[in-house]
Design a protein around this nucleic acid. Sequence first.
DNA 1: GATAATACCTACCAAATTAATAGGAATTAT
DNA 2: ATAATTCCTATTAATTTGGTAGGTATTATC
Lengths: 153, 153
Amino acid sequence: MKLSTRGRYGLRAMLDIARHTEKNEPVSIAAIAQHQDLSERYLEQIMMSLKKAGLVYSSKGAKGGYTLGKKPEDITVGEIIRALEGEISPVECVSLQKSEECIRADFCVTRIIWREVRDVINQVLDKYSLADLLKEEKNLQKEENYADGLSGS
Amino acid sequence: MKLSTRGRYGLRAMLDIARHTEKNEPVSIAAIAQHQDLSERYLEQIMMSLKKAGLVYSSKGAKGGYTLGKKPEDITVGEIIRALEGEISPVECVSLQKSEECIRADFCVTRIIWREVRDVINQVLDKYSLADLLKEEKNLQKEENYADGLSGS
DNA sequence: GATAATACCTACCAAATTAATAGGAATTAT
DNA sequence: ATAATTCCTATTAATTTGGTAGGTATTATC
């Protein structure tokens, strides 16, 4: 039950872009990779998925890079994660676009649980937008400064 | 974000044992494997983990097998899944018995989300006991009968 | 118009994890 | 004694993940 690096890296990349979104300058893969300490080549693939999902807009050529495809408050973590990892579901048999029905589907009680797990995970992921996270980030920094002040002087 | 077969098979195995628990006869690996259509050899390993966690009691030798280690209402799905898959957490960095702290830990906002996801998953899993599932199973069967009755005669 | 910086695309590869097999020892009811 | 069972450890096969690689297309800048 672990998220893969695609989802984790992708979310961090999106946050990185979101932080630069005020200036409205595109952020390059090279820049993101450096900030986030990721492989450029791997990040490239991740960005392609995000682009395909419409979550980022890209401009090619020199000075090119990525900007958010929507406002930070309109991009949820759920969208990002699902764009990168596919539908989030703890088991195949309660996946919405599942390939084939399990033969046990009709009488298998465990599906009740898997459905509920699927739903709560997605609810949490959909609850947070990039804007929310940026706001939380500022709170974290405040706390940090406060702690420094206390222990420091 | 998928559960492994260990967890899924293990839960089904536990339900199987729970169904036989009234008679208080141990259920053998061979029998469970047959009912659930699983590899005996693989199930064997799963049962070892369940035993180690105290969720089943085993008796060796002819007529041996497994019985529940506690009352069905005292065994939660969460306990079973965690016994088989380890701690349930979407990322390593919010795992309770994590090996090493992430260098980003202090300022990484994504952890807020991962923690919440971790908690809701475990809450759902801990909410259901084997007894609850057996009860649900009976409900499913009733509905089935009812549906048959409607479409049948 | 040349150059450098960038995204885009597809294929491939290596490591890790998962799922399962296999062989045999120990125990116990009959 | 025998057959049925759990217990333990090692090995292997399959799948997924996490990346690397090579090359093309586009565009700002000089």
